[in-house]
């Protein structure tokens, strides 16, 4: 897949460091699943974090090892792994069938999860062809398919479904634009992160396709239009609610005020 628009260096760095709100991390994770070059760069940026983590004064670390706190912690950790080991050995006495299950558990959630997800994926592949693979990070909100979500009509050509909100009030939503439909002129109070999950859209600055990642700040006033051949589904993270600025769509603002939690907070 050719992805043309990527997160900035500093945003990818913050993601690798784990120092961004989870809503933004969600959007970046969805992009990285579809973009091999960002995946590779993410790993290299994580390597930088590991390097910095491993630095520090050897003298200080040596002194730290001599403290009672270190010795106490050592005791606690060893006590805990002893306890875990005791649990493991009682499991060994369990019947063979149960034991194989436990072993699978021991291999970890990741292993089990993978099996479940791939079987789900196979089912999806065998089913309706219009279904697109849902990024793993989004499956917690989209368990089956985009079609099965409780879409709400926002305008004749736009449907929206809210997925969750972040601690900073940012709203995470999916936006579905009909083929050739437009979402109307709008600006934002804060930054808006958009990630194209399916289809494509264009605005004054370019054409954005599946996998593309775009950040718009409050300076931008734009009017996205879905391409004519198919509907477009985007993941959006809006730090503060959208303001529609077009003449005909200004009436949408009070509606969004009802939908967006930070509007609700303003009204309280």
């Amino acid at each position: 897949m050719t992805v043309n628009y990527h997160p900035s260096t500093e945003l990818l760095t913050a993601y690798a460091a784990g120092s961004i709100p989870l809503s933004q991390a969600l959007c970046l994770a969805a992009h990285i699943e579809m973009c091999d070059s960002c995946k590779q760069n993410y790993k290299r940026l994580r390597g930088l974090g590991a390097f910095m983590f491993g630095q520090g004064s050897e003298q200080e670390h040596a002194a730290s090892r001599e403290t009672n706190a270190h010795k106490n912690l050592r005791q606690q950790v060893f006590a805990q792994i002893e306890q875990d080991k005791a649990v493991e050995s009682t499991q060994e006495k369990a019947p063979a069938l149960l034991q194989s299950q436990l072993q699978e558990d021991h291999l970890g959630k990741d292993h089990l999860g993978k099996g479940r997800l791939s079987s789900r994926r196979n089912k999806a592949d065998a089913g309706v062809k219009t279904q697109t693979r849902i990024p793993k990070c989004l499956q917690q909100f989209i368990p089956t398919s985009y079609e099965d979500l409780p879409w709400q009509r926002v305008s004749p050509s736009i449907k929206q479904v809210n997925l969750c909100s972040d601690a900073n009030g940012a709203q995470v939503a999916l936006l579905k634009i009909k083929p050739g439909g437009s979402s109307g002129h709008h600006t934002h109070m804060g930054d808006e992160y958009t990630m194209v999950l399916k289809g494509a859209f264009s605005d004054e600055t370019g054409i954005f396709q599946q996998g593309d990642f775009i950040v718009r700040d409050k300076k931008h006033r734009h009017r996205p239009i879905a391409t004519k051949d198919s509907e477009c589904i985007c993941l959006t993270v809006v730090e503060a609610p959208i303001q529609f600025t077009g003449y005909f769509s200004r009436w949408l603002n009070p509606l969004l005020r009802l939908i967006h939690p930070s509007y609700a907070m303003q009204n309280q």
Binding site: P21, A25, A29, K136, Q139, Q140, C164
Partner: peptide
């Protein structure tokens, strides 16, 4: 950080 988003698969590449 929000409890609404499960970080398990956000960095589980």
């Amino acid at each position: 950080y929000t409890m609404e988003i499960d970080p398990e698969f956000l960095w589980a590449e």
